[in-house]
Design a binder for these strands. Structure first.
Length: 378
RNA sequence: GGAGGGAUACCCAAGAGGCUAAAGGGGGCAGACUGUAAAUCUGUUAGCGACGCUUUCGAAGGUUCGAAUCCUUCUCCCUCCA
């Protein structure tokens, strides 16, 4: 459970409480000035200072301890100065628990057509109004310090898939260069700055990136540049060595991953933290995550299905609303459909993480893993 | 009673002799979605024994090598005038 008081001023503390014997899965505890969180943990994504359709109260009810927001998007709108004047991002959006801001490194990937990279930084043409913006590691750190999240991320270059070796290598070099600059310019004592490993799907580049980034000594390490379109086995292969390359006493964060099966696979390989837009995006597109697999609730065969989204789910939505009703709301384009599905999907992943933690705690992660895949249909 | 206008696929709606099984929308059905340019995007939507065949543009007949498109009659709808 989260404690939100009497923690002001804490930088970041991470303790590994237990590690599985048969795999790299581990149970940990992350302490920030906005709470103590058990890991492995999932962080819902609230890019524009909101997890789409959900209030902070909804998120507390769903069991969220820490959420993610975005430097690039908040810099463009409303701007970090406004948020600073509001008393920081926590205060601005009325979020009282943990907060992590992504650096904009993902936008280097996702806004490919609107940016130009050089060794000093990235020129963006705003996707909103076309205005020109230049982000450097120093600027990105300054923005994140004003936003004031508990965890800030280094500015990195996230490469696409497929990607040439040369391109991936250049990104690794830049990401290391920028990580050093980020570290040098970061001086906010109650904010932790995490380093990011790149290397696309090339094992030797991943290893090199891990070596260079860990040499800079960050309080936590993220694995970036995965789940960008590569086949799952390749993503898992890149995670296989995480446990040996990244220090055991620091949190490891796999960026952008959140498909239920991927969470299991990554925890097994020693990952402690995750974030993903998948639960909220799938929700808005009419799909529910369930213990039996993805349920495309907008499909016709649920029109007369008066059972809950997931019969074994104890969330508020599953206790009170039927598949048929939610399908109707989707077909009628009612906003409540997005809210109900978002809440359920976020709850589902957070519950999955709770179950994973319990399993590790009880030395039965492998059983849990096997049982999960027995039930989950792709 | 008189004068015009119109009937196209589930719906709206283009098309005015061959390149039309028929544009566009909508709706339906399905797929995709992983550090959110995403309440988005993509495919499909006459029927089949399906790289071919069969039946479609209010109905019936006709002209033509060829008709949703031209002609005749009929049915129904709308507008205006009495």
């Amino acid at each position: 459970m989260v404690k939100t008081s009497q923690l002001g001023g804490i930088v970041l503390d991470f303790q590994v409480l237990k590690t599985e014997k048969s795999c790299a899965a581990r149970l940990g505890q992350l302490t920030t000035s906005h709470g103590v969180f058990d890991t492995p943990i999932f962080m819902p994504v609230g890019t524009q200072a909101t997890v789409k359709t959900l209030t902070p109260e909804d998120l507390y009810a769903a069991g969220a301890d820490i959420i993610l927001s975005n430097t690039y998007h908040l810099h463009l709108r409303p701007g970090e100065d406004l948020i600073d004047q509001a008393g920081g991002l926590h205060s601005f959006m009325n979020w009282k628990r943990g907060l992590l801001t992504d650096s904009g490194g993902f936008q280097v990937f996702s806004l490919k057509g609107l940016r130009k990279i050089d060794d000093n930084g990235v020129h963006f043409s705003s996707h909103i109004d076309g205005s020109r913006h230049y982000l450097t590691p120093e600027i990105v750190v300054a923005i994140q310090q004003k936003l004031g999240a508990d965890i800030a991320m280094c500015f990195d270059e996230c490469t696409p898939y497929p990607c040439s070796y040369e391109e991936a290598e250049r990104a690794v070099q830049r990401t290391s260069l920028w990580a050093a600059k980020c570290k040098d310019s970061h001086n906010k004592v109650d904010q932790a700055l995490f380093g990011i490993i790149q290397g696309n799907v090339f094992g030797d580049l991943r290893e090199r990136s891990a070596r260079e980034i860990t040499a800079l000594d960050f309080p936590g390490y993220a694995v970036g540049g995965l789940s960008v379109g590569e086949p799952k086995p390749q993503m898992y292969a890149m995670l296989d060595s995480v446990d040996s390359w990244l220090p055991h006493d620091k949190p490891r964060y796999l960026m952008g991953v959140g498909a239920p099966e991927d969470l299991l696979e990554a925890v097994k390989r020693g990952i402690d933290m995750f974030d993903c837009v998948l639960p909220t995006r799938l929700a808005r597109h009419g799909t529910a995550l369930t213990s039996g697999g993805k349920l495309v609730i907008r499909n016709a065969n649920y029109a007369y299905d008066f059972t809950p989204l997931d019969p074994v789910c104890d969330c508020n939505v599953c206790q009170n609303y039927s598949r048929a009703y939610i399908r109707h709301l989707i077909k009628a384009e009612e906003m409540l459909a997005h809210r109900l599905l978002s809440f359920h999907n976020v709850y589902f992943l957070l519950k999955l993480m709770r179950d994973i933690r319990n399993a590790i705690s009880n030395d039965e992660f492998n059983n849990f893993y096997n049982k999960f895949f027995d039930n989950y249909r792709f």
